[in-house]
Nucleic acid binder design. Structure first.
Lengths: 204, 204, 204, 204
DNA sequence: GGATAACCGAGACGGTACGTCCGGTCTTACC
DNA sequence: GGTAAGACCGGACGTACCGTCTCGGTTATCC
């Protein structure tokens, strides 16, 4: 099994699976309850009924614990990254996906831990790299694939830089979320429409 | 002059201006040197040659200090918000502005303190509100005004929601910066072009 | 007017008598309420409705304030030191006096401030000296005089060292008080009897 | 072995003996150097090379630390309370003992820490109780025993209250010490003589 | 199936920083 | 010019966690 950010040195085979999942669950609970800044390794250990050393043995920081917790949260269904819906109508598909994303961010467990992870990434380049490769990367692949499909179908410009295109659609939502701006279905719909149609006025 | 996030309770008239600026300068220096997580109130006080109480008297947290420090940094020139260049060619103007923004983020003092502030905002709704009103708001006004001018000149669609339009252009840059992605002039140019032209393929 | 331990530098004539007595009263109240270790100059100033500087201007420490407060407490009646009763029966007179002393120590104002003063004296030789000259000295004179009178009347040995004699009678009470031992009329009576008669068995 | 004033809650078995003795030694050194009022927990921790929490884990206050330090100082020889010399001549024996006591109080380590302890006892009834049971009690037993022996030998009155007798002899010394009066061998000899013979004049 | 090595809970340890309280000095405005 | 008010620098308080460490007590493979 893949493991997120665990240290490799100790003998992973001997690892107590119960402790591991108790720690990840405690971390998610606590971050939702008290917020990331007040999340402490000691608190996680106490809540999980685990010695502090058991955490430090496997993770270098509370951020790494939370990272694995988020990974586990995402992997629960089947372990497959899945793909975005493709009905042939890109605008409609994107609107559905973004509405779902916005709804997901209403779950305080998810919101709090994502917020925490984003925070940690801002100050920890190594964690940022792991995030890019293990969490954001696969998601981004999925998004890019949907756009590429639309491109092949002639819905999108042939000369489009898909990296930029992905950002154009998803960054406004992420940015508004991170700044606690109002995040509604109306807003995400408007973003999709504007991104696809462009800001520029059409002549004639 | 208005002041950023100082508590209003104590008698602001009696305030020692020298201590205030020493504290703000020390905060900026330290956050650039050791990063936000290792920035401490104690450290700021020591560097500024000030008692800890003098900080706690006027600010509730290290985040608030940094907020005021950033405000002071921005106000240095003249206190006027200024406006974006307007040559009549929106795409060109935006490219110039975004290239300048990217360059500004290369200054470690600015980068580190903005990163710190973004972090704090993620977990402190009250600070987020102050940020929106005192720092981001004025900047956003300036951006919206430039777009409105282009709209009036017929460069942009008449039915455009300018809030969405602002996000479409600036959010990708902010998002990539916060995730430590590569932030080049080529990228910002591509964002401007894609946002203005739209992702959708033109028929005929 | 005598003043206990006030600094002499400032112009005492301009002194605000109301502030002075408010400070002394506040000190006595507070020491009885919260105990000496938690008595603070700031607290006294607040209770007395006085600026801190007004205290520091006239007294060097909270101990000195309390010292003056005790002096004022003792001087209230007439300012005269008075003398011990002298009925011609030393034992009876002493028992009356000591019972009165024990009763006085039941007043928490008096008990707490005396306890505080004793404490301060233990660590501050200068204050100890002032205490010996201004508070304990006069009292001791009075005690010694009563014993000298008994000596002249033939009740006490002619070769007696009266300093030792005073200690023999009063030190046990003071010592037991300071160690919070049980302080009863029975005990003080027993001390008087034992001190006068001596511990040694009489022969024949 | 019993221990002085340590809190019982934490697991005493896991206690680091080196830290404990380093703390006690540091406390004795510091109180002799800077005096009790300037003795700080922080200072003790620094001098002992110990974290502050290690002190707060086991003692509730600097006074309690000093108490244990004094206990340890007293227990060094053998842990036995010992007894007072008994040559059959009570007066001579007492004079020897009191001269030794006075000399002991010349050691600034002992003087300063005893002074500190006395101070703390004045304001902390619980500490006073511990003192009475663990330090003063055993000493007092020893003194009472010596007097009882003299009583049995016919040197002292048969009807004597030994508690009062102990105070009559030792309280004057303790009291004079606490008030920083002159404490000489001549004085202690005079106290013994006066206490044994009594103040009252013997009739021809 | 007994040895042995790692994990595990618990928690003491040396530290750092917290946010508060107060000491003693200095400044300002009022009277 | 004395006073009430209170900001200021400094420093100790007692607490919370950090990350390391040591202690017995379970596992759980490997001889």
């Amino acid at each position: 099994m893949v493991c997120g950010m665990t240290r490799q040195a100790p003998d992973a085979a001997r690892r107590n699976a119960g402790s591991r999942s108790a720690i990840l669950a405690a971390a998610l609970d606590l971050v939702a309850e008290v917020g990331y800044p007040k999340l402490t390794v000691e608190g996680i250990a106490a809540r999980a009924g685990v010695g502090k050393q058991t955490i430090y043995r496997w993770w270098p920081s509370k951020g790494a614990v939370l990272f694995d917790a988020l990974l586990a949260l995402g992997e629960t269904p089947d372990g497959q990254p899945g793909s975005l819906p493709d009905t042939g109508d890109l605008a409609a598909d994107l609107k559905v996906v973004l509405r779902a994303t916005v709804e997901e961010l209403d779950d305080p467990r998810y919101d709090a831990s994502m917020r925490a992870l984003s925070t940690e990434i801002m100050h920890d380049p190594e964690l940022a790299d792991r995030y890019a490769r293990r969490l954001d990367g696969p998601l981004r692949d999925v998004k890019r694939e949907r756009l590429r499909s639309a491109q092949r179908a002639g819905e999108l410009r042939a000369d489009l830089d898909l990296e930029v295109a992905v950002d154009l659609i998803w960054a406004p939502i992420a940015h508004r979320w991170s700044q606690r701006g109002p995040l509604t279905a109306g807003y995400t719909d408007a973003v999709v429409d504007a991104a696809l149609a462009g800001l520029r006025r059409r002549r004639g």
